[in-house]
Design a protein around this nucleic acid. Structure first.
Lengths: 195, 195
DNA sequence: AGATTATCTGAACATACGTTCATTTCAAGG
DNA sequence: CCTTGAAATGAACGTATGTTCAGATAATCT
């Protein structure tokens, strides 16, 4: 047997990426074999190499796409103007964006050490870019007197860690709606940064 | 060849656990083979099984020991009394304790999915116990009016995420001393929870 | 000194891995 | 209807995996 009835490149390609993302998030990159991914797609392992150079590219491409998407989405949404307004927008954006991409976020945080040195450097650069978006807002707010921030970098890291942490405990249909979570987190972030 | 000169169980045992912790933290459980651990210790792979039932026990035992140590250390240090005092003690304790055990903390957060279901349940129970320590302090503070907390559980998770995040960016000998970091984080946590 | 026992080796086990490739099958175009 | 090429198979490759175990060795005890 070979080519399956109804098989098509434009369908299989995305399905490979989706299966890899699901499995990497649930079991970890190192624990997921190409054969497992292929089985999830309904194909033999060899066929995956029509859609990716190798296993490493599968990981890197999804991480890079995620980071680019994060940076692009914020650039689109950034209201500009005063730091308080921008930070509120960022807090709400961050929570929403990350909650809608739980698998990709999980992978972006957990699989850094499974990247080759070159790929690691590339992803790290994107991460730093996002961190500097946050740090920039805090710096502006410090300069304008809107925020009582001692160290903009430290506070940026603290805020990001706190926000991303939502992913580890929030489950849809739980006690709190995502809007409510957004509200409370923004309240905590704001208070932690003002007088 | 067989038994090495100067070989001794009380020495090799801890060295196996130390090597496993180092390697699991750096490369991930799934990516570390028993042969790699053995090589780090300077022994053949088969010898490891004198000190651990299997690879899974190596992971579980170190994670469980870490969690027990965390809970015990806090119980020892808990000053009791009013929530504000207790929370400050906890914030400083958490940062210090986690910074001194970077590898163990990393593993405790990253390798949950490589535990068997039974082991996962056991570790998760310990984690929940610690989360409830924090949540308990916030609840007390809410009841006494010391904290303006809307949802004690959510705030507890936010605080823990923020504090543990220090591990991802703080490097010894950097711009800020650990005492300074403790100070600033406590300031942020306190402000985020009051008025 | 000789016997005992804890400690470790080295080979073996079945199984799985990522990747390549000749071959086969199906869908589409003329 | 026949040709062409994209899409997938399935077998093969060398290597690595966790774990077991009979045998070898050095430290300890009598």
């Amino acid at each position: 047997m070979a080519r399956k009835t109804g098989s098509h490149s434009e369908i299989t390609g995305p399905r490979v990426r989706a299966a890899a993302e699901r499995l990497f998030a649930r079991q970890g990159y190192a624990a997921v074999s190409m054969r497992k991914i292929a089985a999830e797609v309904g194909v033999q392992a060899g066929a995956l190499y029509l859609y990716t150079k190798d296993k490493q590219a599968l990981l890197f491409d999804m991480m890079d796409a995620h980071m680019v998407s994060l940076l692009d989405a914020w650039q689109e949404l950034d209201p500009g103007g005063d730091p308080m307004t921008r930070l509120e927008a960022l807090v709400r954006f961050h929570i929403r964006f990350h909650m809608e991409r739980q698998d990709a976020v999980f992978i972006a945080y957990m699989e850094l050490r499974n990247l080759t040195p070159e790929n690691y450097a590339a992803i790290t650069a994107r991460r730093k870019a996002y961190e500097q978006v946050v740090e920039g807002i805090l710096s502006d707010g410090k300069a304008s007197g809107a925020f009582a921030v001692e160290d903009a970098h430290l506070s940026a890291m603290a805020v990001i860690a706190m926000l991303t942490g939502v992913n580890t405990w929030y489950r849809e249909g739980g006690r709190l709606s995502l809007e409510r979570v957004e509200e409370i987190y923004w309240d905590m972030v704001r208070k932690s940064l003002v007088g």
